[in-house]
Design a protein around this nucleic acid. Sequence first.
DNA 1: TTTATTTGATAACAAATGTTATCGTTGGCG
DNA 2: CGCCAACGATAACATTTGTTATCAAATAAA
Lengths: 191, 191
Amino acid sequence: MFTKFRNKFPISDERWIEYTSYFNRIEAPAKTTLLEEGEVSKKLFIIEKGCIRVWFNNNGKDLTTQFFFENQSVASIESFIKQFPSPVVIETIEPSVIWWISKNDMDKILEEVKEIPELRDRFIDMIFQRTFDYIRHFVSFIKDSPTQRYLTLIEEKPQIIQRVPQHYLASYLGVSTVHLSRIKSKLVHKK
Amino acid sequence: MFTKFRNKFPISDERWIEYTSYFNRIEAPAKTTLLEEGEVSKKLFIIEKGCIRVWFNNNGKDLTTQFFFENQSVASIESFIKQFPSPVVIETIEPSVIWWISKNDMDKILEEVKEIPELRDRFIDMIFQRTFDYIRHFVSFIKDSPTQRYLTLIEEKPQIIQRVPQHYLASYLGVSTVHLSRIKSKLVHKK
DNA sequence: TTTATTTGATAACAAATGTTATCGTTGGCG
DNA sequence: CGCCAACGATAACATTTGTTATCAAATAAA
């Protein structure tokens, strides 16, 4: 699982073995809750196989905010970093193989990583990149119609369309399930 | 302008004097463009007095994505960091007093700051905090009605309501100017 | 002051989107 | 294999929101 990343970490073999040993492998069936609402996040997940969504309950409505797939890392990020109760639930969509690392071990790695200029800069770049992604995402709500957001998703993240049940997709796009169905239907008939 | 921040920077007086000398003061009337669309961002701004908005032209429509006030720093962030053409315009709303620092000088400071653990961690925290803010912002588009978003804004960022012309606010909230007017009117009559 | 520009409210109508309900299909599981 | 739950499509109707146009008020500039 981790060997493919080895060349990206200019650290000693000893460190590498230590760091990778921090990770724990689990297999989770579909619809397994990995983090509950209100729970303080103690684990960061990395997906080897499968697919995860982040969602929360808003007055009885199930609203999905993000999807994650193979090789992506997932956490209730603000909860993980600040050790607040998580406002969101993390849940598998498909049966998944997942590796997790504890907050403590992750902090240990980060402390050391921050002293290595190359890794530290990559870490900072990563955070910035996430920020840019979120900016694009919220701008799309100001700029685009739901139909346009759907088309953009097909272009940019086809995995989501292909692997995620449509009713999860709807709230992610900010529309009702019925309306998403209508959007698809209109697109088909226009063609 | 900068002395009030002095105690937050555990660096030598020499460094402090050097760093603050990088900044340039300008006074700009209302509706001054500080960065044009398509221009590569070379300056980071800090607002001493006044108010700035970030916006872009979308098929002839003026869409505002952010507002900034006293003591906040502003840039077309992705453009500033990656040196891409900026997709957005940065413009004063009120007559403003602004300090700017060049990309080069800022990079110089950052390189040194990254070696000071306390400052480096504060810098990373700042980036994370911005990320969290953007997450909250986009979640509000999934979760809340425009009316609710307006009410939340009154609670959390009253400055925006008080100082920003309403038609800029509308696109920020993701509605038309007419509809924002309706929202206000309904709220008044319900009370 | 006078005038032009900016800003905001409102009405009337059109379009988009939500809600509720029904039905058919699919796929996992006993 | 058969059943049940999950999923998605569709219709009918209600509500929200956008568009265009007009007018009034406030503000800035001449």
